[in-house]
Design a protein around this nucleic acid. Structure first.
Lengths: 237, 237
DNA sequence: CGCGCTCTTGATCAGGTTCAACATTAGTGG
DNA sequence: CCACTAATGTTGAACCTGATCAAGAGCGCG
């Protein structure tokens, strides 16, 4: 385990600023007033990580919740046979570590930064105190977890009921940012991880994308950038 | 939607009894004292369902949390192509409906009783009031949801990283009730549903079980009852 | 400019699905 | 309690999606 020291928010203007940013981007705290926010900030510790660092790994027993403030984090598991499975990619505002926090168990997942990343940490005691003091935060957390259960179950359902082609097509459409009129998808991960997330292999992803391109459904602009030419056509796949 | 009327707990000794049973079997309420329990019971409505009834279906917008008091419930989804996927089987003490409750969305899952079943219902308003009044209930709920996220992610990981044989072997071992020295597994569902849950087909399940039997790892006692002869051997599969 | 690494494409192979026939079990009414 | 029917489970054989292995192309980075 790497020894990370939280960049104290008392020592520099910069980290104080990022600290406030860290807290305010988070949906679960967004409804709090200034006084409450200040209290939250007093128990939250922002920490910098470089690209590729491991935050925690299966077997760890760290009881900390991590909230991504800046950057992105790859969350993955290892199957019993050692094969890697990407569970999801965390963007700013999302959190992890809650299971170890509420259940006093060891982690079953691995978390690793994909870029230089700032994460805010809250330890078990502090969070529990916050939750008992401000029950509305619990409601936000419940909402978030309920969503995540649903998403995870949907992902499992797709993997078992739909062929790769469809899973990929749906993924592309859902990753499309709705406000962007250019219909371009920026993949948040490389093909290897995308393949793992979708429950397939990089080779198959590549082949299916080629197929889509031949059907004029998409156009590859660069490895991570894809323009969708025909949304409806993709969804019919 | 079927019109279910809650069997009022004011009208009969029997339902009052089952009502109390309903509430007390539930882990999320188990830590409350008698006064608090009474308050919970005043907003919880036990309802009887016959075998095979649909509790809710994808598209419903009922904002109610259901807690299984007696019986069992099959929770499933339909893939985009209509194929059915069993998400899990609910036993007494477990609950569903929380996503619709916290997120004001329509259900994406189907819930259907597998036997005559009693479920307790709490509506959104009452639950939120309870959670704000007794934050400790939120912590219990969070714990439960965090566990469920983990389980669902593990299930997804297994389906993508392990072959059917292993998934089935693990399932059998994990379904084994530890206190039972006879090493007998009672399957809580039929082969079709088990196949769906494990992401495969009834035919494959059947074949693999035959294989296990030929290797003297298990013995089929009846369609739903399997004796495990060699736990370690199964886990090595 | 050259060494990684990721990505793409081709050829082969296998795990698991599908379709079909048969066996068994469970449920129902006489 | 048995007979009958429907549903569930089992087994066999053909087929197919997608994985694996291998080689080459493109790209980013020092």
């Amino acid at each position: 385990m790497s020894e990370r020291q939280p960049c104290s928010h008392h020592s520099s203007k910069d980290s104080l600023c990022s600290h406030k940013g860290c807290v305010t981007v988070v949906p679960i705290f967004s409804h709090l007033d200034d006084v409450q926010l200040k209290e939250v900030m007093s128990v939250v510790h922002p920490t910098h990580y470089q690209k590729g660092e491991t935050i925690f790994r299966a077997g760890d027993h760290t009881s900390v919740m991590y909230i991504v403030s800046k950057g992105s984090v790859r969350l993955y598991r290892l199957g019993e046979s050692g094969k890697e499975q990407v569970v999801r990619i965390l963007q700013p505002g999302e959190f992890i570590g809650e299971n170890a926090l509420f259940n006093e168990i060891v982690h079953e997942t691995y978390a690793e930064t994909m870029k230089d990343t700032v994460m805010c940490q809250i330890n078990r005691r502090d969070l529990q105190k916050l939750l008992l003091e401000y029950p509305s935060i619990s409601l936000k957390l419940l909402k978030e977890l309920a969503t995540r259960v649903d998403q995870s179950e949907q992902q499992a359902t797709r993997i078992t009921t739909e062929p790769v082609e469809k899973r990929l097509a749906y993924y592309l459409v859902e990753t499309l940012t709705p406000e962007d009129k250019s219909n371009e998808v920026i993949l948040p991960m490389n093909k290897k991880d995308l393949a793992s997330y979708l429950g397939t292999t990089p080779e198959t992803i590549s082949r299916k994308l080629t197929e889509f391109e031949e059907l004029a459904l998409i156009k590859r602009l660069s490895p991570k950038k894809i323009k969708i030419l025909n949304v409806d056509g993709l969804l019919l796949k």
